[in-house]
């Protein structure tokens, strides 16, 4: 079987959101001697690109996106050790710390973004909802993050985004990270007002934004 056929099988298993099929295709590709990076770059990521496009065009929704992401994560649990065993280094596009600000219990938009970041090749550390501002900063320092992504749905919680940026300035670490904000109550004007590095009205655009910021 040629490499192109294997690539197609890997891609299709992700598009089908079939975790078992993904693992079967990955194990077979490795057994056939394919480089684990090739498995990712020419098989799994093209499949995830299709999933992203289908999500954007509303052909699929969050459950299918999550299923594809879970299948991809299972594959990576096999591929990462294989890359290390072959003497390779982990090649992430960047590291992101993400969460919803203190006082805000909304999670769905943030969860969608987290999945799209993960499936786009970023390492993501999700702090969840109702996150204390210093948890953002401590985690970013701990994992040497490139990006801090802060979500807020409510008008009354927006101020928590500004607090994170102000605290970074106070600590003298503002320049270490790119800070992006989003969520139902946010606007580009708000992002500019608080000195954020970027804002996005949709999860898909946020991935484009972050890719630019880390490059």
């Amino acid at each position: 079987m040629g490499n192109e056929t294997t690539h197609e099988q890997l891609k299709q298993s992700i598009i089908d959101q079939d975790e078992n099929a993904v693992l079967e295709a990955v194990n077979k590709a490795l057994a056939d001697g394919m480089d684990p990076r090739e498995v990712i770059d020419k098989g799994l990521l093209p499949g995830l690109n299709v999933i992203g496009e289908q999500f954007e065009s509303e052909d699929i929704f969050l459950p299918e996106l999550m299923q594809a992401a879970l299948a991809f994560q299972s594959a990576m649990s096999v591929l990462e050790p294989a890359i290390k065993a072959a003497g390779g280094a982990d090649e992430k596009k960047g590291t992101i710390v993400i969460g919803t600000v203190k006082g805000d219990l909304h999670s769905i938009g943030k969860n969608i973004l987290k999945l799209l970041f993960e499936t786009s090749g970023f390492e993501v550390h999700d702090l969840g909802i109702d996150v204390d501002l210093f948890k953002f900063i401590d985690k970013a320092g701990e994992v040497n993050a490139d990006i801090i992504a802060i979500s807020a749905l409510l008008t009354t919680t927006l101020i928590g985004q500004r607090d994170v940026i102000d605290a970074l300035k106070d600590q003298g670490t503002r320049d270490k990270y790119k800070v992006i904000v989003g969520g139902g109550a946010t606007t580009q004007e708000w992002a500019d007002t608080i000195g954020a590095d970027g804002w996005s009205g949709s999860a898909y655009d946020a991935v484009v934004l972050v890719t630019k910021l880390v490059s």
Partner: peptide, 14 residues
């Protein structure tokens, strides 16, 4: 409608 500000500042959640 909503009117959140006191003395010119918006009130913070909680």
């Amino acid at each position: 409608p909503s009117i959140l500000h006191l003395r010119g500042k918006d009130s913070r959640v909680r």
